[in-house]
């Protein structure tokens, strides 16, 4: 399984753009929103937690269709399904690789982009913490969506339609943590709920994703 993770990361690096595109998209969102909303710092500060979370979520969504599509096209997925690794493990590794390539860099760059949106000082720490806790859930849920749509020719749009409603709880709790952090309120409740969703999704969804892959390979 470590071999698979190493391979996926190596592929992402060699293909180029694996890291770059999501980050560039995230940057674009945080630049476009002030252009649309207006430059008043107070307004931006108020909506910053939401914008940053929605931006990170959409950036995550961008690369989801590639989680399984490439392996499906070149036949690797068939071979992986017959290999001695359980398919649940393959799926979990794929989510992990997706997170390292998109979720982790998004988490690290978010505080820099938060400066552009005048996020209040108290929010920075919780922005990073909430993204670090929440983006794994985005990758795991997204992998499930990718598993459902892996055999489809034009799965990209459908994938977004399937995955975005599933992102609702993560988004709500994640943005709430940052909002409360920025306002200096207690953050324990949403933070724990966010962590709970991530833990639950990471523990259970790989089984559903693996089932979906098996059905799609039939």
């Amino acid at each position: 399984m470590i071999a698979l993770l190493v391979r996926d990361l190596r592929l992402a690096m060699r293909a180029g753009g694996g890291f770059g595109l999501g980050l560039a998209f995230f940057l674009l969102v945080t630049v476009l929103v002030p252009l649309g909303v207006g430059p008043e710092g107070a307004t931006l500060a108020k909506i910053a937690p939401g914008i940053l979370w929605v931006g990170a979520l959409l950036a995550c969504l961008l690369s989801l269709d590639r989680v399984f599509a490439l392996d499906f096209e070149d036949g690797s997925l068939d071979l992986l399904a017959t290999a001695p690794i359980p398919l649940e493990g393959v799926v979990a590794v794929k989510s992990a690789a997706h997170w390292i390539v998109t979720g982790l860099p998004l988490t690290l760059i978010a505080p820099v982009l938060a400066v552009l949106l005048h996020l209040p000082e108290g929010g920075y720490l919780w922005l990073v913490v909430s993204l670090a806790l929440g983006t794994p859930a985005l990758s795991v849920i997204g992998t499930f969506g990718a598993a459902l749509t892996v055999g489809l020719k034009r799965g990209g749009l459908l994938l977004s339609l399937l995955v975005l409603p599933l992102y609702v709880p993560t988004l709500i709790f994640g943005a709430e943590v940052v909002k409360r952090g920025a306002e200096g309120m207690a953050i324990a409740t949403p933070l724990l709920l966010l962590a709970g969703i991530t833990a639950g999704a990471a523990a259970l969804l790989p089984f559903a994703s693996a089932a979906a892959i098996r059905i799609n390979l039939r």
């Binding site: 190596r10 070149d74 036949g75 290999a83």
Partner: peptide, 20 residues
């Protein structure tokens, strides 16, 4: 289809399956 990864070398492709 062979399940080859275009950006990996011959040895890397085989080593991956060897460790799997």
């Amino acid at each position: 289809s062979d399940g080859l990864k275009a950006t990996l070398t011959v040895t890397e492709n085989l080593s991956f399956w060897a460790s799997v």
